[in-house]
């Protein structure tokens, strides 16, 4: 039940090759089968796996693996390099608007960790960048969502803007921005309700909030335990809203987190932060190389 990492997976194939002392193309093919399985077990989307394996395979059939004395290790190295490159690139920076306040929208499926991450981001903005955020309770649907954000605000000793649950989220966002201007607060973090990417009405609501607030960042919050569906969710949110980055939550668990690769591959948008616990200081920068090792089970 514990899923095998890539190294264990490659062992059988390696034994066979060792006997022959030379790597053939069919050996590489067999190794690629193991790469595919390792990625699927880590929940990387099957379409993303297909593309990825093709790329790694091309590189492997060339010099690197076939000429190597340790082809297994070489395959792992190639896979890890390609994974890291795919997920890496941009720095985990939070944008700042030229005209304050800077607006950040938190969006995603139900239960992904938006509200908690809103609190964590506010904490980080103050601690690391010396900023003054306003938390905005724009989830008027989920029972006690406002109360949840207010409690986090109290824990952080930070202002929370709310108009109750009888006012539209669009109106709440609008008034919140004015409030931030009045009070000279420089960041506005909008906690939106969880919603399905196929819910047109609610997706329209997000578009309206985007329209009026010109957010500097739209963070898609994704549960790191997400399986194959991660591509549908990320692609759809990105197409409809144009997300600027991703926060991957609950990485303090024992999931492999292949969703990270899937999301990056289909949206091209950077994973900026990872959630490492329920507490408000449990937000870390994203490290592509660490994530690559994790996905490969090493």
């Amino acid at each position: 039940m514990a899923f095998e990492g890539l190294a264990e997976r490659l062992q059988g194939t390696m034994q066979k090759i060792r006997g022959k002392g030379k790597v053939s193309e069919s050996d590489v093919k067999e190794m690629m089968r193991e790469v595919r399985l390792a990625l699927l077990e880590a929940d990387v989307n099957f379409k993303v796996v297909k593309e990825f394996v093709k790329k790694v395979s091309e590189r492997s059939v060339g010099q690197e693996v076939m000429k190597s004395l340790t082809p297994g290790q070489q395959v792992i190295k190639v896979v890890k390099e390609e994974l890291t490159e795919l997920m890496g690139g941009e720095e985990s920076r939070i944008g700042t608007s030229k005209r304050p306040p800077t607006v950040i929208m938190m969006v995603g499926l139900q239960g992904a960790g938006k509200t908690t991450t809103t609190g964590k981001l506010a904490n980080l903005l103050r601690k690391k960048y010396n900023r003054k955020p306003l938390l905005v309770a724009a989830d008027v649907y989920r029972p006690a969502a406002i109360k949840q954000l207010e409690t986090l605000g109290k824990q952080l000793d930070m202002p929370v803007f709310s108009l109750g649950d009888q006012v539209s989220p669009v109106e709440i966002a609008k008034q919140a921005i004015q409030k931030a201007k009045d009070d000279h607060l420089d960041y506005v973090l909008i906690d939106t309700a969880g919603r399905l990417h196929i819910d047109e009405t609610l997706m329209d609501e997000l578009k309206q909030i985007k329209e009026l607030s010109s957010p500097e960042e739209i963070f898609l919050v994704v549960d790191s335990m997400t399986g194959q569906d991660a591509v549908n969710v990320a692609e759809s949110f990105n197409e409809q809203l144009g997300i600027t980055g991703v926060v991957l939550t609950k990485l303090d668990g024992d999931t492999r987190g292949g969703a990270a690769l899937s999301i990056r591959a289909v949206t091209g948008k950077p994973i900026k932060f990872v959630g490492m616990g329920e507490k408000l200081d449990a937000l870390e920068l994203f490290h592509p190389e660490r994530m690559a090792s994790r996905i490969l089970g090493m």
Partner: peptide
């Protein structure tokens, strides 16, 4: 169990 969960759901259940 959240239906969006991947293979980790098996570890959760166990």
């Amino acid at each position: 169990v959240d239906a969006t969960t991947g293979q980790n759901a098996l570890v959760q259940a166990k």
